[in-house]
Amino acid sequence: NQASVVANQLIPINTALTLVMMRSEVVTPVGIPAEDIPRLVSMQVNRAVPLGTTLMPDMVRGYA
C-alpha cells in the first residue's frame, strides 16, 4: 500500500504548499504519492482543499 499526500489543514485556493500543510497517509483512492511531498513545496493549489482531503494531481498547479 502506497502512502498518498493528505491535507493537514484547510488549504485555501491559490495557496503555496508548505511541509506543515501536508502529511502522508495510506488512503483510497490513491492520490499524489507521499514521496513527491518535497516537490510539492511552493506549488499552488487551484482549489480549496479541506482538512483530510487526498491531494490529486489536478489539484496542484504545475504538478501533472
Rank of each mutant, 00 (worst) to 15 (best):
M43R: 10
R47Q: 11
L17H: 00
V60E: 00
T28L: 06
P33T: 12
E25R: 05
P33Q: 08
V6M: 08
I37A: 09
P29W: 04
V27G: 03
S4M: 02
A64N: 10
S24M: 10
G52Q: 04
P38Q: 11
V41W: 04
E25F: 05
A16T: 15
V6H: 02
Y63H: 04
R39D: 04
T18G: 04
M21S: 04
S24H: 11
E35C: 07
E25K: 05
V20K: 14
N1W: 09
N1H: 06
A16P: 12
G62R: 05
I11F: 01
N46M: 14
V27P: 01
N8V: 10
V41N: 04
P38Y: 08
S24C: 06
R47F: 09
L10S: 15
V60I: 12
L51N: 06
N14M: 09
P29S: 05
I37D: 00
S24P: 08
N46P: 03
R47L: 08
T54N: 02
D58Q: 07
V5H: 01
I13G: 14
L55S: 01
T18S: 08
V30N: 06
A64S: 12
N46E: 14
T18V: 10
T15D: 04
N46F: 08
V26Y: 13
S4I: 01
Q9H: 12
V5C: 07
P50G: 12
E35M: 09
V60D: 01
P12G: 08
R39F: 15
L40V: 09
I37K: 06
N8I: 07
P57Q: 06
Q9M: 08
V6Y: 02
Y63T: 03
E25C: 06
S24Q: 10
P29V: 08
E35G: 06
A7P: 01
A48L: 10
P57Y: 11
L40D: 00
N8T: 15
N14E: 15
E25A: 10
S42T: 12
N14I: 02
T28P: 02
I11Y: 00
S4A: 03
P29E: 13
N1I: 15
T54V: 11
R61G: 13
V20G: 09
S4R: 02
M59N: 06
I11Q: 01
G52A: 10
I37N: 00
Y63F: 10
V20M: 15
P12A: 11
V20Q: 10
A34C: 15
I11K: 00
P29G: 04
P33A: 13
L51G: 12
M56D: 05
P50I: 10
A3P: 08
P29Y: 04
P50M: 13
V27N: 03
R47P: 02
A3Y: 14
I37M: 14
A7I: 08
M22C: 03
I37P: 01
S42A: 15
N8R: 09
N1Y: 14
I13V: 12
I32V: 08
A34P: 08
L10I: 10
S4P: 00
M43W: 11
V5F: 02
T15V: 09
V45C: 05
V41E: 07
P33K: 13
V5L: 04
N8G: 07
Q2C: 12
G31Y: 02
M21D: 03
I32L: 08
A3T: 09
S42W: 14
R61I: 14
T18R: 10
G52S: 15
A48Y: 08
V20N: 13
P12Q: 12
R61D: 06
P33Y: 15
P12W: 08
N14V: 03
M56P: 01
L17N: 00
E25I: 05
N1L: 11
N1C: 06
L51F: 14
V49D: 01
A7C: 05
N8Y: 05
V27Q: 10
A48P: 06
R61N: 07
V26W: 09
A34H: 10
